[in-house]
């Protein structure tokens, strides 16, 4: 196959040193230009609204920023030192890590369970797929309002169910020990986006693998363990990374359940990193510190992702590598 990229870049046309015919080369140039034009809105948007804002936030993380005048006063590393001095940063980071460790495996397991169920449904598969996906379409505010009622420690449906089974009924929204699990429950409700990716992966597993293994006497668990999981390991890996990043940035569910009403109390157990960052920026106007918090989170997410990529690649089956 001809190597296209060097030709576009104006370098040697092929690895064999044979130049592409002029007409074909012009067509490739036009295709490249068209390609760049098509992606240019995203590139411009990224540079202006994301990369630009990132650079600006990096700059103000070394300053004290006055919103009224737009003036910035250099403070060196003070904002980063403050990250260590402020005990609520550690609290927020600890809560966020705890949530991520609890939520991501449960979300993966639950989404996979739902996907396997849907994969096996024959009649009415479209109906069930739609029903299972509906929570994803529900606005976060509506979901939070529903869960506020469901999780009520006194009369909530979840506790009524638990009591009917003779099980202890926790104070989900009041007891600090149960606050993070309550938010995890809410996250599980909206796991259908992950489920759809798993479902697509399950549909692409060759059926003959199951047939052969079944002929060899493999039971459902062995089929799942030795065929399904390896064959969808790419999707598991992808979902794990995406959900981990999302978990580190958790904001809306906790904010809506605990922090929306500023006249009421919100236990420290519900103080997640992004919420504290928001408070520092938009309630205390401490933009330099908030920017430093954002960069700390960025570094943490990057490190975790790099570790996941390096570690995860060992266990992921890539069809193209075989």
């Amino acid at each position: 196959m001809t190597h296209v990229a060097p030709a576009v870049a104006g370098g040697p046309a092929t690895t064999t040193g044979t130049a592409a015919p002029p007409r074909r080369r012009r067509r490739l140039d036009r295709e490249a230009i068209a390609g760049y034009l098509f992606i240019s809105p995203w590139v411009v948007g990224f540079l202006v609204f994301t990369a630009g804002a990132m650079l600006w936030s990096l700059y103000i993380s070394f300053t004290r920023y006055n919103l009224a005048t737009g003036a910035t006063t250099p403070v060196g590393l003070d904002n980063y030192r403050e990250l260590l001095d402020d005990p609520r940063v550690a609290t927020a980071l600890g809560n966020t890590l705890f949530y991520a460790v609890l939520a991501v495996p449960l979300e993966i397991a639950f989404a996979l369970f739902l996907a396997v169920l849907l994969d096996r449904v024959g009649k009415g598969a479209g109906f069930f797929r739609t029903v299972f996906y509906l929570p994803k379409m529900t606005p976060a505010v509506a979901t939070a309002a529903i869960f506020f009622l469901l999780l009520n420690g006194s009369n909530g449906a979840i506790n009524r169910f638990l009591r009917s089974l003779g099980l202890p009924a926790p104070q989900w929204l009041v007891d600090p020990d149960w606050i993070k699990p309550s938010i995890v429950l809410m996250s599980l409700w909206a796991v259908s986006g992950t489920m759809v990716i798993f479902l697509a992966a399950l549909k692409s597993v060759p059926r003959e693998l199951y047939e052969v293994a079944t002929l060899d006497g493999a039971g459902p668990w062995r089929l799942f363990r030795h065929i399904t999981v390896p064959m969808i390991s790419g999707a598991i890996f992808f979902n794990t990374i995406v959900l981990t990043i999302a978990a580190f940035q958790i904001f809306d569910s906790a904010y809506l359940l605990f922090w929306r009403d500023q006249g009421s109390s919100a236990p420290d157990a519900s103080l997640f990193y992004a919420i504290y960052l928001f408070q520092q920026a938009f309630r205390q106007f401490n933009f330099g510190f908030a920017a430093a918090m954002a960069w700390l989170l960025f570094v943490i997410v990057m490190l975790v992702t790099v570790v996941q990529v390096r570690f995860g690649n060992r266990f992921v089956y890539y069809e193209a590598d075989r």
Partner: peptide, 30 residues
Amino acid sequence: TPLLTGLALVTAAATLAACGPGGGGGGGAG
């Protein structure tokens, strides 16, 4: 691998971008 790292970069960038108060400075009400 770079694709996944890029994914992390973009999503984390969203957090960073969110805390930029104005951009470019000079705005302000003052």
